[in-house]
Design a protein around this nucleic acid. Structure first.
Lengths: 330, 330
DNA sequence: TAATTATATGAAAATGATTTCATGTTCTTG
DNA sequence: CAAGAACATGAAATCATTTTCATATAATTA
């Protein structure tokens, strides 16, 4: 690989001048700039990022933590982040936390060692106190997941409203016996908590009591959804509708219902969350709450880049619209 | 951040000795090693990767190129690669080529600038002549996609056999009028070509002629599949079965068939490729050809790590098993 | 016991960039 | 036209590490 010295030698100028051209510093005459550019092209010169980093320059790499990339919601989110990053000349380093605290910390360490300029977290496993300690090494922003304090920029949705819209829709369809199925645990913080609140608000406004037997926690996959449906079938007093925290779980419920001859939506109305491609594939098609994934990715990169340019930037929340998509499963 | 000099100062030893401890060089006395380790722990010292890279050390980062991460097949592949890489202490840098030659080259440049130790390509957009020119900067291995020369290690499946199995299955079910739907173009190299051959072999063995009107090329998404079905419905002479290059396209066909009241498999038998989660979700469940994604990811990392340790390693192919999964769509 | 050889350690060079400082030229401005 | 400001250039320092070279001591061998 050609180095800056090679370029300097070939162009008959100093490394300093070459460096100035690379970083388009103003004080370079047009003639010499031309000579440098010509030499650079001739040698196929690319500045060595390790050397630039060592001098405290930016890495033009942004880290993204996701729980698991095979979850289509996160695949889409990662996709939109990567697209936006590429447009701005950034690379994307991906890490899967697999809901493991250690893995999350291992990834945050990349910030400490300046391998990434900043990190976008789409989920958080550790407490914020711990994550915060990495913040001094570079910006951390939360996208999708969030916590209820204004400590870092957050790209978030009004989850409370989303859950409220969904629950309300079920109530309007005449349901009184509504089950609830969440990805998190019940006393959690952030996203899950807000959804719980929205759900509860809708029900209490309609004067409906929540039956604790109809609450399912820690449900994530299609398999989990199937299992939930089997549990419901065994109940004496069954719910007539179920609100789920993800399209995948909703999908599992619908697939298993078909297996057991339970009709959707007449036997059980099902509502999902995310509006993933699967929502259109299921039969019946899934009523769900759409999260504007592309917007979230784009906005995250925008905020990250601003923050890298101006680290003193004001920390605030960016709330994006959330929307109910009514299809055939309710 | 603490530097190696800080550790040297605190431990009262030289940078050299500290470096020796970090890289566990043999010639360090146990006593001093202890002192260094203690100082390192006390300062929370982590070596600066940029500086190490600059000195020509490995980056412990492996680049992975995928066409698009939202394609569940590639999401799973990336997942298995990341898992395997993490276990061996490597990070994974992802780039989406979006089937764009420029983007692919931009990513290959990371090798040139030593930002990654090696690159795993799960698809290739540029000709091998061009890709090969990056090979001198670090190992490139092909996983999933491949070319028909032994120029780089390839983790591949016997695609010819896969397509043969699928086509044969349709023929055994009594079909004579079989359509073919591929992701690539028709005269392509590598994966697509082998599949074409397998398909053709099965048909010619059964004495069946291929109807060129029933060949669909460049089909990738669910939407593409829907479109294919509409085209079939408009034909006077319709096929009774269709072989597709991906579960997603097959899914689109099945969904659209339902929309038009065409029964699967009686009106049209459909066979997919990949055995993605969607295959189990579709109604009827999809007959498909399973690719051992987890194995492919694992093997790729194994080979990559070996190759990094011993760059002179013999180049060879690693062929993994491929399998027909019969469900309800045929 | 003298001569190798293996073990231990550190000073200084090297890696490839950017930044600081010094110096010289050209342009404004009073 | 003198003096200060703006422009243009390069030598050398700097970033955090590894590697080379030099040197000293301990262990082995002849």
């Amino acid at each position: 690989m050609a180095t800056i010295s090679d370029v300097a030698k070939l162009s008959g100028l100093s490394k300093t001048t070459v460096s100035r051209v690379i970083n388009n510093h103003p004080y370079v005459s047009d003639k010499k700039r031309e000579r440098v550019l010509k030499a650079m092209k001739e040698l196929g010169y690319i500045p060595n990022p390790s050397a630039r980093r060592l001098r405290g320059q930016l890495t033009t790499t942004i880290g993204v933590i996701v729980p698991r990339i095979v979850n289509p919601f996160f695949a889409h989110l990662v996709n939109s982040i990567e697209q936006a990053a590429y447009k701005k000349g950034y690379q994307m380093l991906i890490g899967q936390s697999y809901e493991d605290k250690e893995k999350e910390l291992a990834f945050l360490n990349l910030l400490k060692t300046k391998q990434v300029d900043g990190i976008i977290m789409t989920s958080t496993e550790n407490d914020w106190d711990i994550i915060e300690s990495y913040n001094e090494y570079g910006p951390i922003i939360l996208c999708n997941d969030y916590i209820n304090q204004e400590v870092a920029p957050m790209i978030r949705l009004d989850q409370t409203k989303g859950a409220y819209l969904g629950a309300n829709h079920l109530i309007e369809r005449g349901h009184q016996k509504i089950a609830y199925c969440t990805g998190g645990l019940f006393d959690e913080q952030g996203k899950g908590k807000d959804r719980n609140q929205g759900f509860q608000k809708a029900l209490s406004e309609a004067g409906i009591k929540i039956n604790p037997k109809w609450i399912f926690i820690d449900q994530h996959t299609i398999e989990d959804g199937k299992h939930v449906l089997r549990q419901i079938l065994e109940m004496e007093d069954r719910p007539t509708a179920i609100f789920t925290g993800s399209d995948e779980v909703a999908g599992g419920i619908i697939i298993e219902a078909k297996e057991h001859g339970l009709l959707i939506p007449n036997g059980l109305a099902v509502i999902g969350f995310d509006d993933q491609p699967i929502a259109e594939i299921l039969d019946p098609k899934l009523t769900t709450i759409r999260q504007p994934v592309d917007l979230m990715g784009e906005r995250s990169i925008e905020v990250m880049v601003e923050l890298l340019v101006n680290p003193e930037m004001e920390i605030r929340n960016y709330e994006l619209p959330i929307e109910l998509i009514v299809r055939k499963s309710t």
